[in-house]
Amino acid sequence: MTDPASGTLDLARLPATRRDLHAHPELAFDEHRTAGVIADYLRGLGIEVTTGIGGTGVVGVIVGGRPGPTVGLRADMDALPIVEELPREHASTVQGVMHACGHDGHCAILLGAAELLSTAPDFAGTVVLVFQPAEEGGAGAAAMIADGVLEKFGILEIYGLHNIPGIPAGHFAVRPGTQLASFDDLDIVLRATGGHAMAPHLTGDVIVAGSALVTELQTVVARRLDPLVPAVVSITQFTAGTTNNVLPPTARLRGTARCLEAAARTEIEKLVRQICESVAAAHGVEVELTYEHRYPCTVNDPVAAARSARVAAGLVGPDRVDPNCAGILAAEDFAFFLNEIPGAYAFIGNGPITAESGPVHNPAYDFNDAIIEPGARYLAAIARQALADLA
């Protein structure tokens, strides 16, 4: 079997492709140009391509030299509605849209893995390359699953990789069990009669009620949940009123709830509902809560996570791999794949956070092209090792 650390990669074309994708970002389910670039790249490697899965998803199939099982490798393709801050040569050419999470780099990494695997298909089985749309809130993974991507291609296990600023470039981290949080949306509307600001006793004050609600919701994590369970409830929008002498009839609060345990997720929803009802009653206003479950926790299969750590250590050395990293409260729709089949989601360091390269979801963010090669070699290696183990 070919050593994925020794195969050659086109280290001029891959960064150029990444920067081209960065300059032409597309939002969830609108990744038409991106999908075309990826499909053409795969076809140029002689890889069979299927497009339009789950909307704009692209799937490539690499058949090994001998029969065997099938594993999947996944990269996300979509960008974010963020204005790029720095005038880079490859800066976004689409106003108000940028690759602020590194999905452009994830695509380049998976294209690199495709190159390594397709040029040396001396393995038993099949590797399916899953280029997924709409990770950023659109649940593109669920859309591809609903479109039959797992059944159509017979995928038994699946692996993914996400860059993390703040971890040294090219270092890896993974954990067995829950790696990333669940993600739910809160939308709260408070209603009262409203009226003149001179006579608050004749109205219900939705601003005071909303302010109390913001404060009380912070007790969910601080006082009502097990403090050993990582969780957060954040109100991120508070909208009310149109002028300075009128108490408005409505106020709207929006936010998010996240945690690293399924049981805690259920408890958070129950507590949020209780607090909304009690605060509204105490302030004499009406409340309507819409609590929408979005992404489940991303839970790595323990065997797959251990395999990921061993493979990464074999590539970069055990001193550059954390095999039991802490879970974080970011969410990922890769969780939908892991709800269906075993697999693991790992992190690769993007390097230090600086003024020239901020954290993810930040206008100054940029993907570090130096990690395309180690990321590609990791994905190629984990695919080979998973196939060998499953066989």
Rank of each mutant, 00 (worst) to 15 (best):
G358F: 12
H293G: 00
N244E: 13
F29L: 15
L289T: 09
F172I: 00
V208I: 15
T250L: 12
N163L: 11
P133H: 04
G160T: 01
L161M: 06
L110K: 03
P374E: 00
T70Q: 10
D147L: 13
C325D: 09
E277H: 14
A79E: 04
V221G: 03
T34K: 04
L116E: 00
Q132A: 09
A263K: 15
V246G: 05
L27E: 06
F334P: 03
I372Y: 03
G105E: 12
A330N: 02
L129D: 03
G96E: 01
I188Y: 08
H201I: 06
L116W: 00
G52N: 12
R384V: 00
D187T: 07
M198Q: 13
P67M: 04
V128K: 07
N324V: 07
T354I: 02
Q274I: 12
E151A: 15
T354R: 01
P67G: 10
Y378M: 00
L217G: 11
V220W: 14
T290M: 06
A391H: 10
D78W: 03
E31R: 05
A391L: 06
E277W: 07
R252V: 14
L390D: 00
H361I: 04
N368H: 12
N163Q: 08
L225H: 06
L11F: 12
R74M: 02
R307E: 04
A231I: 08
T50F: 14
E85I: 04
P374V: 01
A12Y: 06
T298I: 02
L202W: 06
A391N: 09
A124N: 05
I353M: 05
S182G: 07
L11K: 12
S92Q: 11
I164C: 00
G137L: 14
A181S: 08
V49T: 13
S234R: 05
T2A: 09
I275H: 04
H162M: 05
T236I: 11
T203C: 15
A197P: 06
H196V: 11
I167Q: 10
V37P: 08
I164S: 04
T354C: 01
I371Q: 01
Q274A: 15
R191H: 14
P352F: 09
P176F: 02
L14I: 07
P87M: 05
K152C: 08
H162D: 00
V58Q: 06
D184G: 06
E292K: 14
D319R: 08
I155Q: 01
L271V: 13
E115Q: 15
H99M: 10
P323D: 02
A262G: 10
E31F: 13
T250H: 15
R191N: 07
I164T: 12
T290R: 15
I348E: 03
D122F: 06
V189A: 10
Y41N: 08
A305E: 01
V149H: 11
